[in-house]
């Protein structure tokens, strides 16, 4: 059970039960659908970005506790951050959930609760689905910007 509590920390269970920023963001500037075809997890990330800063973000969809809590905590963690900061945060989060040798990164704040995921390789994709979807939403916008 102690190992399991490392994975299913109280913060994760709480965000699974009561996800923050859950629902539709009307007239969102950017959005992307994320899908994990292997497990059927589906989520949509919608956000507004003004002057390179995330002003609002919401998500909806269905998935396991890890994927739902990850999306929920991610939305909390990126609001008010610049897109560069968001991408840097994703890099650090990715390292946290995949690299067993990585030291605890204090700058991750609440996101550090996902450290336990690294011991469950099959669940890494659950933890990073929301982030991949977020980056896809953001990158699409940049593609559009670059073609204009």
């Amino acid at each position: 059970m102690s190992d399991l509590r490392e994975l299913y920390q109280e913060v994760i269970l709480d965000h699974n039960r009561s996800p923050r920023n859950f629902g539709v963001l009307e007239d969102a500037m950017l959005h992307a659908d994320g899908h994990n075809p292997l497990c059927g997890d589906k989520l949509t990330i919608a956000l507004n970005v003004v002057d390179e800063v995330v002003t609002d973000v919401r998500f909806e969809g269905s998935g396991c506790a890890i994927s739902k809590a990850s999306a929920s905590l991610m939305t909390e963690g990126i609001k008010g951050k610049t897109l560069d900061e968001v991408k840097a945060l994703f890099e650090r989060f990715h390292q946290l959930v995949t690299d067993r040798a990585a030291p605890t990164d204090a700058t991750l704040g609440k996101l550090a609760v996902f450290a336990g995921v690294r011991d469950y390789p099959a669940r890494v994709k659950c933890a990073i689905l929301a982030w991949h979807t977020l980056i896809a939403a953001v990158d699409n916008s940049q593609d559009q910007i670059s073609t204009e």
């Binding site: 399991l4 994975l7 299913y8 497990c39 269905s62 998935g63 396991c64 506790a65 669940r123 659950c126």
Partner: peptide, 9 residues
Amino acid sequence: VHAHDIGTI
């Protein structure tokens, strides 16, 4: 409880 969480536990 999502099926994946059941599977892991």
